[in-house]
Structure formats: structure tokens, C-alpha cells
Design a protein around this nucleic acid. Structure first.
Lengths: 337, 337
DNA sequence: AACAATTGCGCAATCGATTGCGCAAAGGCT
DNA sequence: AGCCTTTGCGCAATCGATTGCGCAATTGTT
């Protein structure tokens, strides 16, 4: 029904065996010394009946599906959809299609997705892991190439490509200090995630190594949500020690903080400065445009796909490639601090 | 390598034939009157060795892959990634995985993607078509269920689920008129797309049927891009007849228009009103928050998947279901008009 | 002319799961 | 005891493409 054409039907109509048809259409005609006439007849017939190989059958036989699994915490998040977009395009160039899974920040759904990938015999996996443990991914990576992006695990040999979050935290904070802010508040996201920990480390190191003695700072918050941004901000603004600058660890947190700041009638950047992580074109259209640390998504996507493709296609011996890469994000100035 | 377990290995270890193992693990043990002992032994062994059926092999034999193809013009566009997110989740509930393709607004890439879907024997396809002709999709839909979303074609029987763009155009325009604006400019997107045509029709009908005699209006623009929004706006603002309200057919267009308006030093909504299509949480954080026609993405996604699943699984006789559905968008008030 | 080398292509197994058909053994009935 | 029914399960084909092995026919060599 789907497409009645197969090697079989072409074989019957041309009079050549299935093997010969297969070899010709695989472009191995010369190699197997198939005659000119046969090659042309078969190719013409395939063309005429618009033959398309059944990739399922091919996959079963060759154990290669030309499919890779991609799991992200939320494809609805612009950062991840941007990554997905980049990865999809790059992989397409290499002849791979992508099976998409949205784990919804839920480790169980991620496990489901990964199992599904395995059952479907993907050739490789790119994952933004949501769990706290690399265990399953490590197990999987023993049978199929896996590359982590954006998030990763400490003490693991799993290859990953991510933002240099320490550097991001460091440079955002240094920028605030240089701008004269002296009472800094970092509103963080999920405490257990490495990116978050690194940003905190960068934040704290920047303060401690600034040479300034009069800087006060604090870290609060617990999720990458705007509710967290709003509540954390409200609390400190109503406390006896309101910060003069806020470092939001994500755009969502920033939006929450922004709402709180506006409700309090404070002016940015005079009453309070704000700097954020992540990138989104809307940031330029806010009032004021938000200064932020942009993550190098295009590079993360490109490097991760290249890495994965190399792992899949490269000779098994040359896995000498350094598989853990972090890329420096860059600061984009708005007028929010 | 990937997973050495198969019906074969379980068969060997339990002493039962491959057929019996297959039937037991397919839950058809009772049906085929397999003995208690056999059932338990086999299930236990499958559990123990963590057997996962090879869906490639299964797919080849059963002609069912439990995979559906989704192609969108740009997964990087929040509207589409939102749709993708919704669709992914719904389909997952029905046991389907999704093969994602990004056509990048290019008909050739869409064709590639669709062919790839066919070769991979997807059970169904959900597409946001980018081409101007339904020909290929119609041909495909004769062999595998296809549902169009967001965009569609006139004079076709292809099932689709989309926003009621006419209504959207109508209600946005009526709103502007009710707010007292009298010189309206609509900045449209791709001229050939049905959603665009319908929005224009709604816009013009609203003006003509308003009962007001003194309304002037115009339609300009040609792509869903912020460049288009910027240039179109600049041109009219510098003309002798600047509009007092702009209806942007997409968020991207609106951002471009916003830039132009700001450059001209005009105040929203006093000097000029602005209303947009699409939804994005950032719209609420702009200054002022943008009034817009929100598309019912959750419903579009849900209905489209339900429709597709029904087409795939339902008895072939009952395709009596009305397959062309448009859903009314709704107006969300900001303070931009 | 006898034999080797080359050309050209087909046979059949294989990948892993599904399924129509059917067979052997056990139990029931008269 | 002889025959029928039910229980319990296996054989082998099938899905479509790939591939190691090998055979027959043709050409070349001496």
C-alpha cells in the first residue's frame, strides 16, 4: 500500500535477480562487475517506478538506521528549540534523521525516551540530561554513541559539549562590579545541575577576586522558573537589605524578577541593575533591553553533532578525541545595568 | 552489540520455540493456550535479561512503526516549537514517537523530508506545509494518513486543523476600530499562504462592514520577518499619510514595526496603536504589553493528533469525520492600543 | 585444442519478529 | 478399545534489503 515497489518487483520486471538489482541500486554495479546493459535497465526501471528503498528493511539488515535520538527537557523552551533546529540541520547534512523526545524535565520520561531510542536502534543519541545521575546514560553509551549537551555530569567520561558556565557567571558578575554595583543577588535555578553550580562558582569567585572589599552578595532561588524569579526578587526587595543588582540565571527567572521590580516601582538600571543568562531576540525589545550572557548555541549544536557523527562513523580506534568541551559564552550589552 | 537479546536468545535459554516466546511476550499467551509454566518461565527470563523488542524488525514484519513524521517550517520559531511540544506529548500518550524535520520554509527540503518519512514507513504525517501546491501531499496522503496544521490549501480534501484566520483578522480589526483608530495599516506576511489571505480578508471585511464611513486602510508587506515589519512601518511613517494603528500579522513583523516606531519617537498607544498575531510570553513584558490575537496552539495540536491517530487506527470505513477544522483564536489585551 | 582467467550474475542465508497452519499428546466419551 | 476434542506448542514462510560464496559462460593463453 505505502509503496508497492521493492527490489522484488523490479527484479521481476527486469528479469534480473534481486541481488543484482540491489547491487546496482546501491551503486555497487561496477564493483560487482554488473554489465552495462543490466545497470542501465535496472536504473531506468527504478527511476520509472519511483523506487524508494525501505529503510526499515535496510536498517534491519545493516543494523544502521541513519537516525539519531534527541532528547531535551522541553522543546518549548526557545533555547532548546534553537539547539534542536541547529542539530537537525547539521545532522541532515550527514544523512541522519532525528527522533525527537521531550522529557519535560522528568527523569522517568527521559528514561522512557532513551529506551525507545534503543528499541528503535538509533545510531546515536544527543541528550540534554535531566536526571541527577549519569548511570543510565553511561550504560547506554557502552552500546551506542552518546553526546550530552548543555548539561552534564561531574566525574564521568561521557562526552559533552556545553557552555562554559563558570566563565559566564564570572564575566556577568565582573561586569556588574565594573558598573559600580556593590550589593549583588544571584537568583539561581536547579541547584543540582552542573551549569547552575558552575554559574554560582563563577559568581562567587568574581566577587571574592574583585579586589573590592565592600561588596555584599547572596545567592537565592531554586528553579529555572519565573515564579522563582518573582518570589526571590520580591522577598529581597522587601527585606532590609535590597540588592542594587540582580543576576538572573535564566531568562525565565529574569522575567519574574522584572515583574517584581516593576511592581515595586523601581527603575532599571538606576534603582537596580539586572543581567541575565540565555539569549532571546525579545530581550532587545524589552524596556530597557536586557544585558545578558548569551550561550553559544550554534557552536554547541555544531560541535556536538560533529562529535557524534565522528563517534558513529569514525574508526573505533580513534576515540582519542577530547570529548568534553565547554565553550565560552559572550556578554551582550543591553541597557539594564 | 546494541542489545544482544532477541526472541532467539530467550528461546534458546528457555527451551521454548521462538514462536512461543513471541506470543507470550506479545501478551497473547492465553489466546494461544500457552501453558502457565511456559508463560512464567519466558516472562521471567525476558525480565531477567532485560529484553526489549527490536522495533525495526517488528516494523518490517508488521508494517507498523509507531512513528509519525512531523515537518515544520522552522522549529526555531516559538509558535512551531510550541506546536511540536504539544504534538510530541499527545502522540507519546498514544504510543507514537516523532521524526522531526525542519523544512526551513523551503519546499525542496519539505519534499526531502516527506520522502524520508515514506522510506522510513511512518504511520502518519503531520505537516505545516510550506509549498504552494498541495500536489505532493495529496499524493502521499493516498498511501499514508496526513494531517495539515496551521497552513492549508484551498480546493483540497486534505484534512487540516488551523486557526480561524479570517476571524482573527476580523476581530483584531474590529478591536482597533472600536478603540477609535481610523487609519489602519495591515502588514502582512507571505502573500500566497492561506492564513495570510484569510487574515487580509478578515481585515478588509471588518473595515467595510464597520458602518463607519471615515476609515482608511491599507495592506502592505510580503514576508513574516521583522525586516518587513521595520521597512513597511518606516515607509508609511515617513509618508504623508501615516496610519494611527498597525495590525502586524506576526510577532516578528510586530517587532520590526516596534523598532521603527521607537526610532521615530512615537508613543504607543497614543501616537500609534499596534496589535499583533501569535503568542509569546514576552509580549506581556514589552513596553507596553502588546495586544494580540493568540492562536489556539494547544487545541490545534491536540485535535490534529487525535485526528491522525483516528485515521491510523480507526476502521477505514469511518473516515466520515469532518477533516477540515478551523479554531477561533482569541484576543489578549495588552496596552498597545 | 585444452586450460586458466575473467566477466556477469544468481542462490540462499541473514537481520528479528510475527503468524497461519498443523501436529502430537492428553483427556473425554461411548 | 477406538475415536473425537482439547491442550500446548513448533515449523516455516514472510517482511525487504544485503552479501558471502560460487557457478556458468565468455575470453585469453600457449
Amino acid at each position: 500500500m505505502t509503496s508497492k515497489e521493492s527490489l522484488q518487483t523490479i527484479s521481476e520486471r527486469t528479469g534480473y535477480s534481486v541481488s543484482t538489482v540491489s547491487r546496482v541500486l546501491a551503486g555497487k554495479g561496477e564493483q560487482y562487475r554488473i554489465g552495462r546493459l543490466a545497470i542501465e535497465t535496472i536504473k531506468a526501471e527504478a527511476q520509472a517506478c519511483n523506487y524508494r528503498p525501505d529503510l526499515i528493511a535496510k536498517g534491519l539488515r545493516t543494523r544502521k538506521t541513519n537516525t539519531i535520538g534527541l532528547t531535551v527537557p522541553s522543546i518549548d523552551n526557545p533555547f532548546f528549540s534553537n539547539l534542536a533546529s541547529i542539530i537537525t540541520c547539521h545532522l541532515k547534512k550527514h544523512g541522519y534523521n532525528i527522533l525527537l523526545a521531550d522529557s519535560m524535565e522528568d527523569a522517568r520520561m527521559e528514561t522512557d525516551a532513551l529506551n525507545s531510542f534503543l528499541s528503535r536502534k538509533v545510531d546515536g543519541i544527543i541528550a540534554v540530561p535531566v536526571g541527577e545521575s549519569p548511570e543510565m546514560l553511561e550504560r547506554i553509551s557502552r552500546s551506542v554513541p552518546v553526546v550530552l549537551i548543555d548539561r552534564y555530569f561531574p566525574d564521568t567520561t561521557l562526552p559533552y559539549v556545553c557552555t562554559d558556565n563558570y566563565y559566564g557567571g564570572l564575566s556577568a558578575t565582573r561586569y556588574l562590579i565594573r558598573k559600580g554595583y556593590r550589593n549583588l543577588l544571584a537568583i539561581q535555578g536547579v541547584l543540582t545541575s552542573m551549569p547552575n553550580k558552575e554559574r554560582v562558582r563563577g559568581f562567587e569567585d568574581a566577587v571574592r577576586n574583585s579586589g573590592e572589599k565592600d561588596i555584599r552578595y547572596a545567592v537565592t532561588g531554586d528553579t529555572f522558573s519565573s515564579e522563582n524569579g518573582y518570589e526571590s526578587t520580591m522577598k529581597v526587595l522587601e527585606s532590609g537589605n535590597p540588592p542594587d543588582a540582580i543576576f538572573a540565571f535564566s531568562t525565565t527567572i529574569m522575567l519574574g524578577a522584572l515583574t517584581a521590580i516593576r511592581e515595586k516601582g523601581l527603575k532599571i538600571p538606576d534603582d537596580i541593575g539586572i543581567i541575565s543568562f540565555d539569549n532571546n531576540r525579545f530581550l532587545d525589545y524589552l524596556d530597557p533591553p536586557i544585558t545578558r550572557i548569551e550561550q553559544p548555541a550554534p557552536q554547541i549544536g555544531r560541535i556536538a553533532t560533529d562529535m557524534l557523527v565522528k563517534m558513529i562513523e569514525g574508526s573505533p580506534s580513534e576515540d582519542s578525541t577530547e570529548g568534553q568541551i565547554s565553550i565560552r559564552p559572550f556578554l551582550v550589552e543591553g541597557r539594564s545595568c
